[in-house]
Design a binder for these strands. Sequence first.
DNA 1: AAGACGTGGGA
DNA 2: TTCCCAAGTCT
Length: 353
Amino acid sequence: MSLEKAWVQDLLSWYEKEHRALPWRQNRDPYRIWISEVMLQQTKVETVIPYYERFMSKFPTLDDLAAAPEDEVLKAWEGLGYYSRARHLHAAVKEVSARYEGRVPDAYEAFRALPGVGDYTAGAVLSIGYDVPVPAVDGNVLRVYARYVGMNDNVLSPKVQKRVREALYLVMPEGRSSDFNQAIMELGALVCKPKSPRCDDCPLHFTCVAARLQMQHELPVRTKSVSAKVEHLAVLILRSEDKWLVRKRPTRGLLANLWELPYVVMENPQIDGNILKALHQFSNQLGASTKDFVWVGEYKHVFSHLTWELKVYSSEAEPFEVMMPYRWIDEKDRQTMAFGQVFNKILSAIEKW
DNA sequence: AAGACGTGGGA
DNA sequence: TTCCCAAGTCT
């Protein structure tokens, strides 16, 4: 025990003294822990308590719950929200009742595989119920961790969450994973709060990077990824002899000055008759002759990641005169293309046509 | 990976 | 009052 880091001892001592007496902390029955953890997903402790009390007196053991009809389980859940939690829990409990003789499995893989059991719930139930040495990383833990070590990575990122799990696994005190996990969560709930952290009352105050740097209000970083902007583009693919029609992009901004296939941005995600007509007219203005091939492609533009699909083609264009900044290119000019990879794919697809 | 899933509490 | 949003799992 003396081998543990001092801050782990401070944390554990704080938890022993300050933790709340909650209904699911009366004993370590893994079934009771499990129910509490599922109810606590996205739900505040004060909201959960009355539901938990009622639920446990209605379904005192795992086999009681497994034997109940789903309607009754949902009825007991009524008002708690996220009802798939209840349905998954019921299904999982029935599986445990049937396959594991009503005993909650203590093997991580087995328990994690049950419906409704994700990384957090698996860690929480197994560590709290059985002292299995596995971290339980919820929003509280991410916040405490990010502040304590001064981590400014986005904690919403699954990759970052994985790193946190791994880091915590390495510092878990032997045989104390239950108290350790609960202590961090309790600290997050009572002291290291999102809005007004009580740093003066924190057992980790003197070794906390955020406190030292007065960064507790800036951490954790939780940047929602801007929902990817999607553009649907109708692309004109015009070939005359061995040459392809391209145009020059604007001199500023994304892929400035590069050459690209001419396109129009569509209102709707699909090429319709109007777009076809416009593109056809466009190719006429560009003077495509009847022996030229005109394809219409569809780009889907997500951020700067481009996917495409070849939709239709026609070869009914009329003669024309090419105007700048349009230009016909052949094979050797391709290095100037924007979205060159996509262009190459289009060409090879058309060759195979 | 991004949105759906419920409700309650805070801005 | 209305709007915004939390931070687990599934799809």
